[in-house]
Design a protein around this nucleic acid. Sequence first.
DNA 1: CATATTTGACCAGG
DNA 2: CCTGGTCAAATATG
Length: 344
Amino acid sequence: MFHFDPRAKQKNPMDPVQQALSLILHGCRLTKELEARLGDLANQPETLSKSCDDIINTFASAKEMLNNAHPHQGSSQQQTDPSLQELLNYGVITQAMDMIQSGRTSISIGAEIQAMEVSDSAGGSSSSSQRSHRSSSKHDEEKCRMRVPAPQMGNTDLPPEDNYTWRKYGQKEILGSRYPRAYYRCTHQKLYNCPAKKQVQRLDNDFHTFEVTYIGQHTCHMSSTAPSIAPLIQDPMAMVSQPTLPPPTSSSSVAPLGTWLSMEFSLGSGSSPGGRGGGDAVASAAAGGGAASMGSRYGREVVEFPAVADMADAMFNSGSSSSNSMDFIFPHMEDKWEAGDKAN
DNA sequence: CATATTTGACCAGG
DNA sequence: CCTGGTCAAATATG
C-alpha cells in the first residue's frame, strides 16, 4: 500500500504540522512498544509509569506544536528547539516523515490505509510447489521505510536496536547501491509465527545512515493474560498510528478487533504435502502455550493483537490540555526488553 | 551443545 | 535473463 520514492531523501525542513504528525506517529510507536511489553512489565509499575510518561509527553508535545502551528509558514526552516531536533533524527520520526512526504500530508493518514486487507486467504494452495511461494501476493505486505542514524557508538555498524530481536537470514548486493542489503526476520518467527521482517541497508552517500524497511508486523509478544483487552479504537490518533502498524483488517473505527485476539490460526490450507514448502516448514506445532498447530509455512496466519493506541488517546483527551514544554527527550529505550520469554 | 550469522544457491517476478 | 528475496548448509559464537 505504501510506496515511497525509492531514493527519496528527506532533506527539506518540515513545518510544525508535519513535525507534530511525526511526533504523533512516534507516540503511537511508543504506545505499541508499551503494548508489546505489557506482559513483561506487569510487575514493574515504575517502568510502566515511565513508559506512559514518555507517551504522554510525546503526544502532548505534538498537540502543543499543533496549537502553536501557524497555518502557513513553510518558508523558513523549523524553529524547533534542539531537543526536538534530536528527536527528529530518530529513525522513527524519519519514517514518519517519509510517509508523510510520500503523499498524504493530511491527518487522514489512516483513512487510506484501512483499505488494507489481510489477504490471508491462503486458500488451498497446498499443492503448490517449491519454496518461496508465499501464499500471499507479497504485494500487500505493508512496508515502513525509515532512516536511522548509524550508531556512532563504538559498536559495529549494526542498526540500533528496536525493541525486537531479529535474526539475519540473508544479505545481498543491490544493484546500484554501494552497500549490501541485509535481511532480517523476527527471531520469534517460530514461536509466534511472527511474520515481521526488516531490511537494512546503508545509504549510498551516507555511510552513517541506515535505511530500515520494516515489512509485516510482529505477532509475537502477546501477553500471557487474557486476550480480552477490549479495544476501543475510534479516534484520529488510532488512525494515525496505522501507517506504522497497519492492522490487518482494521477499519479506522470499528474493526473486528476481537478477531485479532483470538489467535486463530485459521488457515484452511493444508500444508503442502511432501512439498516441503521450502525449508521453513516450521512444523513447530505447539508453540508456547499449546498453540494451535499450523502445518503451513510461516507467514500467513495473522495473530493479531489489539493496539493500545487508544490508551494513550484516552490519557490525552481526558486531561492534559497543555503540558509542559517539550522536554520529552525520551530515552532511547533500547534496553533489554528482550522478549526472550517464550512461555507466554 | 544450542543458537545466531555467513554465504552461495535457489526461486519467482519483472 | 536479470534482480531481489529467501533458503539452508556451513560456520561462528556463547
